[in-house]
Design a protein around this nucleic acid. Structure first.
Length: 342
DNA sequence: CAAACGTGGCG
DNA sequence: TCGCCAAGTTT
């Protein structure tokens, strides 16, 4: 086990004192948090920056104010609200989660770690976050911020996503999170960890000189702040070509709903065309675009074509506003819808 | 367990 | 332009 450079209570108190003065207190989801609002914000915040999430969270809570209203919504409306936020399985799982809570939990929100992890889309981190933020109770969290902070503070070497390091980090989180019996606030403690990681213990140019833990930080002591956490090995991302079909009829555009599995799942998209399909005749290009995903680059060409199967639907401008489209597809359509004459 | 899964901001 | 990475989960 890691040698602890500080007592648990000193760590907690220094963190909480700092957050009380320097932490974030005005984020939308911090105002009157409920289990549902915390769930929504935590799912949105997965792999997504705070500034990006804020307007999505506001719109979401206006349209789906309660878990019951979300459960009753139709999928296209849900996806329209998530449009542009990315990682769309989160939206589908959040919709499932609402139905699960309403239908299988009698509308009672689960309130222990194990029951929370049974909710679709809720893993170990999110379960801990809901315990902390919604119930102000014991709920250890290990996210990117905590990984970075702990790897530095305890000078933990090794691949940050290896099971060895991950287990170590969770063990530390369990140990350093105030217990249920503690007089300290679990909500404030969890927020303090995140705020530290987001504003002081940052990936680049960490603010060690004003850090409340600088006296006991092992990485600072060993002059390893910039070496920790151990950087992930980089992988080369491939370029994938793709062709999409462009069909206009009477001011309407033809779109196909993508299957829930795979990229852009559950969104409506220009139909993807298999160029190996001999049924598709050569056709002049409408345009092209490139798009970078986390794991590959898309080099897309859009060509005129006639829908053969009735696997899609026609949408006018009003119809487009009620469904979710992939960001680059939406951008392409908006650019080309006006200056193309069928 | 490694890979899939989006998008935008920033240096 | 380009690489990094941001309140992870699922398969």
């Amino acid at each position: 086990m890691t040698h602890s450079p500080i007592s648990v209570t000193d760590f907690q108190n220094q963190l909480l004192d700092w957050a009380n003065a320097q932490g974030r207190h005005d984020l939308p989801w911090q105002q009157q948090p409920t289990p549902y609002s915390v769930l929504v914000s935590e799912i949105m915040l997965q792999q997504t920056q705070v500034a990006t999430v804020i307007p999505y969270f506001e719109r979401w809570m206006t349209s789906f104010a309660t878990v019951e209203s979300l459960a009753a919504a139709d999928e296209d409306t849900v996806m329209a609200h998530w449009q542009g936020l990315g990682y769309y399985s989160r939206a589908r799982n959040l919709h499932k989660a609402a139905k699960y809570i309403v239908d299988s939990c009698n509308g009672e929100f689960p309130c222990d770690l194990k029951a929370l992890e049974a909710i679709p889309g809720v893993g170990r981190y999110t379960a801990g976050a809901i315990m902390s933020f919604a119930y102000d109770d014991y709920g250890p969290i290990v996210d990117g911020n905590v990984k970075r902070l702990f790897c530095r503070f305890f000078a933990i070497e090794g691949q940050i996503n290896s099971s060895k390091v991950v287990n170590q980090l969770w063990q530390l989180a369990e140990q350093y999170t105030p217990s249920s019996e503690s007089a300290l606030s679990n909500r404030n403690f969890a927020q303090a960890l995140l705020d530290m990681g987001a504003t002081l213990c940052t990936p680049k140019n960490p603010n060690c000189t004003v850090c409340p833990l600088q006296q006991t930080c092992m990485a600072l002591k060993l002059d390893k702040v910039h070496q920790l956490p151990t950087p992930k090995p980089k992988k080369v991302i491939p370029i994938k070509p793709a062709t999409f079909g462009w069909a206009l009829n009477n001011q309407q555009i033809y779109l196909v709903k993508r299957p829930s599995e795979g990229v852009w799942g559950g969104l409506w998209c220009l139909p993807e065309i298999d160029l190996a399909d001999n049924e598709i005749a050569e056709s002049k290009a409408v345009g092209r675009f490139r798009h970078t995903f986390s794991h590959y680059k898309l080099a897309a060409e859009v060509i005129h074509y006639q829908p053969a199967k009735s696997d899609g639907q026609w949408f006018d401008n009003q119809g487009l506003s009620s469904i979710g489209l992939p960001k680059p597809i939406k951008t392409f359509i908006e650019k080309h819808l006006n200056d193309v004459s069928d």
